[in-house]
Amino acid sequence: MGRGQRYGIALSAFVAFAVGAVMTLSLLLGDNPALFGDQPGSAQLAGLLALPADVLLRLVTIVVALSILIGIANLLYVHVGRLARGKAYSAIVLASFGFTVYWYVMRPGDTSLLEAVQVPIESALAALLCLSLLHGGSRVLGKRADIWGLLFVAVVVLVLLASLPLAELAPIQAWRDWLMRVPVSAGARALLLGIALGTVVTGVRALLGQDRSFRG
């Protein structure tokens, strides 16, 4: 690794650390005017401290909005390459893209393509998804032949039964409600809690400049 590259890595890690620290402090202090007591001007001070985070977040949203262009460029690049290798599907993708752009340029504001093409296709895909889910649901015990798999299937069946609008199945709805309110809710919170913990640990790693992105 050359000296220049090393400096580059150190610089990028430093920038990450500095921006992370500024954001954290700005979000913590700027969001809470109560920290500065009731003196006159405390609200202004909090507003001033919140400014860096505000500016940086706005920058991020602009960058994220523009990043769709990267995606589109990538999609075109990949499919042009595939077309060169003789893949016919890519021709359809590129032709559809061209047609959509042409349509929008010629008829600005007309979004009927979305309703006439996108919505039916995505609805059809959603129907296919239903079949996939059904197939997957019917072979859970083929994949996981254990007590947890059995429990999973039992809960799925119970929830589906309770969703049926049949008067005969009314008692099951009470079970379903309890199931959704207590164990399912607890499990969902546990999953989210775990992901939050992981997010903090990874965030600290990035904040300390130790993520692989900064290590060259």
Partner: peptide, 23 residues
């Protein structure tokens, strides 16, 4: 929707019974 849910329950129960028996 009601009939579809019924059919889905049938398929899920039947399929899993077969897999469990096979296992």
């Amino acid at each position: 929707m009601t009939l579809g849910t019924l059919a889905a329950i049938l398929v899920i129960v039947f399929g899993n019974t077969i897999y469990a028996a096979r296992g």
